[in-house]
Design a binder for these strands. Sequence first.
DNA 1: GTCCCCCTTGGAGCGCGCTCGAAGTCAAAT
DNA 2: ATTTGACTTCGAGCGCGCTCCAAGGGGGAC
Lengths: 127, 127
Amino acid sequence: METGYTIAEVSDITGLTAHTLRYYERAGLLSPPGRGSNGHRRYVESDLGMLRILTRLKATGMTIQEMRRYAELCRSGAATFEARRVLLEEHRQQVLDRIAALRGDLELIESKIKFYAEGDTRDLAGP
Amino acid sequence: METGYTIAEVSDITGLTAHTLRYYERAGLLSPPGRGSNGHRRYVESDLGMLRILTRLKATGMTIQEMRRYAELCRSGAATFEARRVLLEEHRQQVLDRIAALRGDLELIESKIKFYAEGDTRDLAGP
DNA sequence: GTCCCCCTTGGAGCGCGCTCGAAGTCAAAT
DNA sequence: ATTTGACTTCGAGCGCGCTCCAAGGGGGAC
């Protein structure tokens, strides 16, 4: 038995398809993993750690480009800790801003819901 | 002077390009507006009202397909008030769920920020 | 041997939501 | 009369993030 995880195992663990995992590698989000004696990819724990944070970044709206930038910093060693922190803090702020914007957008939607709930035929700007 | 707004005026008001406004019409989000004597589109207040809600729906992640469904209900008259309310309430819940998910995703990102801020070289799962 | 299944690569294709370009019409200004 | 400029239609093109396909290899079970 070889050490590490096959692409299928990582797919099961992360919920990403094998196709997507190879795509992430091509896109520079994931450093090319080692290979087993049969030439198949063998992923290790740190790959899983990277995928965990990448999926959170993606879920919060980070683009592939920005994720690549983060991944590049990670590959450049501990000297980039500060740059990574800054990058993540900027992203954090963007997410907070987006949550605030969503709340604002919800207000109009909720006023519309109220309008429909009241069956209010008075004028409230058509649709 | 003809009544209503030209496509350029609506573009200015909404921030959507004229191209996008025509696209929304093609896509069934906006009922075809009236035309001036020169054949140009003349938008009216209710079109602006529709665009206001559409932009909020879009900003909160609704797809064009779903917006078309809403627009179709709007075109079908007051009998669809209840259906529109249900549609908007379902969307509202999805947005609330998404906000909650974003908050959850932020937690991992923030733990990572903390890790980098402390320059903590102890093991905390690699990248 | 010969199934079967998982893996490999390279490259094409897709759905979304625009975005743009070409070619033409019309009205007002010069 | 010509130029300018805003509008019209139709259809193609684009960037993103996958998603899928074809063709092939390697290894275990029977």
